[in-house]
């Protein structure tokens, strides 16, 4: 039930910031709709640790800055290939992921796709592997060398011993 309160407060905050109308009637309606959406989400079973990952939020800024820097670097690399398309040496490589939750694996695949030059084609949940299409050899090496894997693992909760 705690997740319903947290999500109601978050959504009402978003509503307050976006609405710009602050009469008592509209405030009450906004609070009611935030509560209604949270109850619906609870009924749909999407308000779990994946839908509302509170632990991750504090570690997010550092990784966000790092990923923005990576995105800018690889953007320049892809533009270089677009200017001279004969430089393209596309390949499919397999990246092994060190994450142990489904959310962590999805975040890793999303980060790979978010940096231009690499697109995750298939995520294998059983073997913890991601098949990646890279535009050139350098882009492939950048995903397989494990630096992105380590950053994504930073976001994940520590593994509970014995689990």
């Amino acid at each position: 039930m705690r997740s319903v309160y947290v999500s109601t407060i978050l959504m009402f905050g978003l509503w307050l910031a976006l609405s710009g109308h602050y009469t008592p009637l509209l405030l009450a309606l906004g609070a009611l709709s935030a509560l209604g959406v949270s109850l619906l989400a609870k009924r749909m079973n999407v308000l779990d640790e994946e839908g509302l990952p509170m632990g991750i939020l504090f570690r997010l800024p550092r990784v966000t800055l790092w990923i923005i820097w990576e995105i800018l670097k690889s953007n320049l690399g892809v533009i270089r290939v677009i200017i001279a398309p004969s430089k393209a040496a596309p390949q499919l490589v397999t990246v092994s992921a060190g994450q142990h939750t489904a959310a962590g694996l999805v975040t890793h695949a999303n980060f790979i796709t978010l940096t231009p030059g690499t697109v995750s084609v298939q995520v294998d949940e059983d073997r913890n592997e991601i098949i990646v299409h890279g535009l050139t050899q350098e882009f492939c090496d950048a995903t397989t060398d494990g630096s992105m894997d380590a950053k994504v693992s930073l976001l994940e909760k520590r593994k509970v011993s014995g689990a």
């Binding site: 892809v78 290939v81 393209a88 596309p90 940096t115 030059g117 535009l135």
Partner: peptide
């Protein structure tokens, strides 16, 4: 527009 196949064009869309 310029790159070779669907998978390569995805990198253009990514930019």
């Amino acid at each position: 527009l310029r790159l070779g196949d669907v998978y390569q064009r995805m990198h253009g869309a990514g930019i």
